[in-house]
Amino acid sequence: MANDSMQKIKLGLFVTGGIVLFVAILFFLGMTDIFTNKATVQTCFSESVQGLTVGSAVKYRGVPIGSVTKISIRVPDKLVQVDMAVELRHFVSAGNHGQQRSDFRNFFRSELEQGMRCRLEYAGITGMRYIDFDYYATPGETLPEPPVGIPDAGALYIPAVPSPFRDILKAIGTSLDRISRIRFEEISDGLERSLSELSGLLSDPALKSTIARINEASENLELGSRTISRVFSEERLNRLMGLLEEDLEKVNRLTEQLISETRDAKIPESTSAFREASNAITFSQDELANTLTKLNQTLDALTELADSLSADPSSVVSGKKKPQLRLEKMDR
């Protein structure tokens, strides 16, 4: 009996000691966390934070600097508010705790002006997410106004930007919506009709004859090109091109010479002289016409005189006799 009592006492003391040691460890860890120098950072997301939980990591350019301490829903604007605890020991500073906190706030404010924002990222393929601080905005870009009631006293507000996965899902959703609006049945019916018409067209004898003629023409063209290639070698073509260039050069020189001679010919003066000569020729033609008329009259007179002399040579001495026709009429 005594041995059983001693064993029970030892077992009780062991269990009690273990409980005390466990409570002490929890107390020590809690006190250590309490005395850790931290800064509170807040942000708000307008997208789903699926995969983000209390205790999720907070990173600055991939370096773990803290964790998520609280996730809450803002009823007025339906935003998801996330509170984070950032450990200042990850940021090197030569001052005391108060100086470290001040340096941290100044550092983050200057980084915000350089485009630093926070964004949700996936931690591998597990679906778990964390918050990453990085330069997602353009340096010098105007900071968006924080929602009403943020930040809390002593907290620092970091604006959030949409995650790339959200943009991908949005693009996929838009694409699927557009695809769903496509009338595949009408396209299928139209394609079937087109294929049927194409089949009928291809089976048309006229088309086959046309294709045969095109093939024959292409063969003739190829044969002609081969013949030209055999007749006109590269050397001969170069020689022909050289002769053509020489002829063109001669034509250019002749053109320049004609232009020069045309300029030296004094065309306006020559035109005026031609006009005067034309007027003189016209006047001479009139005079010549009058002269020819008079000459014709003279020839007529000479012809009449010749006829008279031929009929009566003595008329040169006695003069021209008067006609007897009138006297005969009187005798009758």
Rank of each mutant, 00 (worst) to 15 (best):
F108E: 00
L244I: 13
G154D: 00
K321T: 09
R89S: 14
M128P: 02
Y136P: 00
V316R: 01
R117T: 08
I172Y: 01
P144Q: 00
T271S: 08
R275W: 02
I131R: 00
G62S: 10
G173S: 07
R129D: 01
V58T: 03
G200E: 12
K38M: 08
V23W: 05
I214H: 13
F165K: 07
L288W: 08
S48L: 11
D152T: 14
K250W: 01
S270Q: 06
Q81M: 06
A94M: 08
M128W: 01
I71H: 05
A289F: 03
R193K: 02
S218L: 08
F45E: 00
F133L: 14
V231K: 04
T142R: 10
R236I: 06
L327P: 10
C118N: 02
A39M: 15
D264L: 09
M330A: 03
R263V: 13
S225M: 07
I9Y: 10
D177F: 11
I211L: 14
M330N: 02
E186P: 02
I267D: 01
T210F: 06
A85S: 15
G124P: 09
R101N: 09
G115I: 04
S278W: 04
P146T: 00
V251Q: 05
K320G: 01
P76F: 02
E261N: 05
G55E: 03
T36I: 05
F14R: 13
L191Y: 12
K329H: 14
Q285A: 09
E197C: 03
E219F: 09
N238Q: 12
Y135N: 01
D247N: 09
T69S: 13
I125P: 09
D331T: 14
S310W: 05
L29G: 11
Y60A: 03
N238L: 11
A212V: 13
A57L: 08
T298E: 01
R101T: 12
P64D: 03
M330D: 01
T298Y: 04
I228G: 04
R230V: 13
R129K: 14
T43K: 00
E111C: 12
S203D: 14
A2S: 15
D33N: 15
T53N: 10
V251C: 04
G200T: 15
K170S: 12
S48A: 14
Y135P: 05
H97C: 09
V41F: 06
A24W: 10
R236P: 01
E261C: 04
S233A: 05
R74F: 09
R230T: 14
P64I: 02
C44V: 15
I259W: 02
